[in-house]
Structure formats: structure tokens, C-alpha cells
Design a protein around this nucleic acid. Sequence first.
DNA 1: CCCAAATATTTCAAGCCTAAAATTTCGTAC
DNA 2: GTACGAAATTTTAGGCTTGAAATATTTGGG
Lengths: 155, 155
Amino acid sequence: MTLKPKPATELISKTRLRLWLKLLKLTSGIEATLRRRLRDDHDTTLPRFDVLAALSRYPDGLKMSDLSGYLKVSNGNVTGIVDRLTEEGLTLRVASPGDRRAQVARLTPKGRAAFDTLARHHETWVDDLLTGLSADEAETLTRLVEKALAAQEQP
Amino acid sequence: MTLKPKPATELISKTRLRLWLKLLKLTSGIEATLRRRLRDDHDTTLPRFDVLAALSRYPDGLKMSDLSGYLKVSNGNVTGIVDRLTEEGLTLRVASPGDRRAQVARLTPKGRAAFDTLARHHETWVDDLLTGLSADEAETLTRLVEKALAAQEQP
DNA sequence: CCCAAATATTTCAAGCCTAAAATTTCGTAC
DNA sequence: GTACGAAATTTTAGGCTTGAAATATTTGGG
């Protein structure tokens, strides 16, 4: 009696699809929790947090287009978020010296203070959400994710 | 000469935060590619695809609230997406027999055909995007993600 | 200098998303 | 059978997101 050959090519695409669905479930779940806590505990949103985080790494501010480049969102999107952050007094726009087309977005002192608080909580939340993984497991997972990223970043 | 004790508790939270940022980068990147291909190649969106996928598993249709439950999105959100899918002729609403409050959303034959095509492409895209991982690596990754999910799903 | 192409940003239309309010219907206690 | 709370859905207001159009400015070739 002969065995059929294992259809390896078909199986791996199913394995990868299954992996993708699990990955999506994990990250969507974590993201939903982060959004909820930002909203309920700090009356803010993830996109606002992301903008504050980017600006906090550039004390001299970032041009609007650089900001949208780092965050991988559209220019028009950043315009709206910075508008709202500025209304709240967390950021401000300065004219770019030497280029009257460009605007530089910066944190205000209030913005920096708000971000510091948010960042501390954010790290705690993430730690709690990934509490199921030991340090070793987290490192293995990170390594595999990096490998997937490396292959994906080619195009 | 004495060595300082390793601050293990602090390190693991940093390890987990790093993992989270990598995970987010991987899934956001994959999701962005899937959205772009759905738009450019099939003139549709990921939320529409998700609704079609859910309905395709229930030939008799799903109540609007069950649909929003499965997809983990709000009721009002599902109302809008099904509105648009119905305008496009891919879904329809039927009155729920025995409960005049409820609506059942179903695929039309056109909707089923559209989903079948999309699903084939979707699987190929995901396979390509995760091509950096061998079958073994994908399985290890899946197992670790499942472990993280199990711990996270408690609350 | 002058002007055309390129660049930086904002505005706009449309879709997605949520929480909360409004509407309709159901089920039940009386 | 009537009224009242619960359930299913839609509507609404507001924020996020994109791509494309509009605006303002810069830059480089002639």
C-alpha cells in the first residue's frame, strides 16, 4: 500500500493564514484595550498618543510631513490630529525658519507632561497584556516577528 | 568586588514593550498591504471583506447583532457597512421570522461569488507576506501567540 | 528676472468607528 | 389587555483615515 505524498505547498499557506488570524486577534485585542484605557482613564486616543510619542523624541519639533512619514499616516490626517492637540494646549505649530511653506509641530510643556504620564501607564498596560509570556518566550517571539518583518519589508 | 543584582522585573517589561512594538509593526504592515490590494485590485475594503467572510459561514444569514458580535464592532458600524454592501448588491436584509425587531443579513449569489474570489486572493497575499517564515517557524510563532492570547483573554 | 515644476500643507468628500440617544417591538407582570 | 422594562436596530455627533484637489511657496532653467 502506498501513501499519498503530503501536499506541503498547500499546507504551509494554510498554516500562514492561521498564523495571520491569530496575530490579528492578539494585536487587535491589545490595541482595543489600549484605546479603551486611554479613553476611560485619560480622555484621549491612540492616534493622539502616537503623535505625542513621536514629538517627544524631537524636542525641537518635527515638520508636519516628517511627522506623517514617521507615523505612516497621511498628511491630511496629521493636520487634523495636531489641530485637536493644539486646541487642547498639548502641541503648537511654529513657522519653519527658512521655508514659509512648512510648519513645525512641537510639544508644549503641558504636552510633554501629559505624554510622560501616558507613557508610564502605557508600558504598564502592555506588560500586563503580555503577562502570559516569560522573558524567554517574549524574546523568541520578538526574534520570529523580526524575521517575518525582514522578509516583508522588501517590496 | 560585588555585582549589582540584575533588575529582572524592569527588564521584562521593556522586553514586552519591544515585542509589542514589533508585533504592531508587523500586523500594521500586513494590514496596510491587504487594504491596498483590496482597494486597487478589487475596489473594496477590509471591513466589507470581513462582513462578507462572516456571512459566508452562515448560509442562512446572521442577525445584525450577531454579526457585530462576531466581528467585535459596534452595531451602528455594521448597519453602515451592510447598507453599502446592499447598495452594491452583495448582501440583502430579510425580516427575522418571529421577531419584527430583528433583521437578518445574508449574502446574495453575487455576494457569495465576490467573496470566493476575494478569499482566494486574500490567502495568497497573506502567504506572500509571511513568506519569510518556514512552516516550523510559523507553527512556533502561532503557538506563542496562542499562549499570549490565552493569558490576555481572562479579563 | 520669470515662470514652470516640485514641495509643504491644508481642505474636501467619503468611508470606518464608537458611544449614546432614539425607535420599534417583545415579553411579562399585573 | 395594558403598561413597563428589555432587546434589536438605526440614527447621530464626533473623531480617525485616505486620496485627491486646492493653496502657497520654493527652486531651478532659461
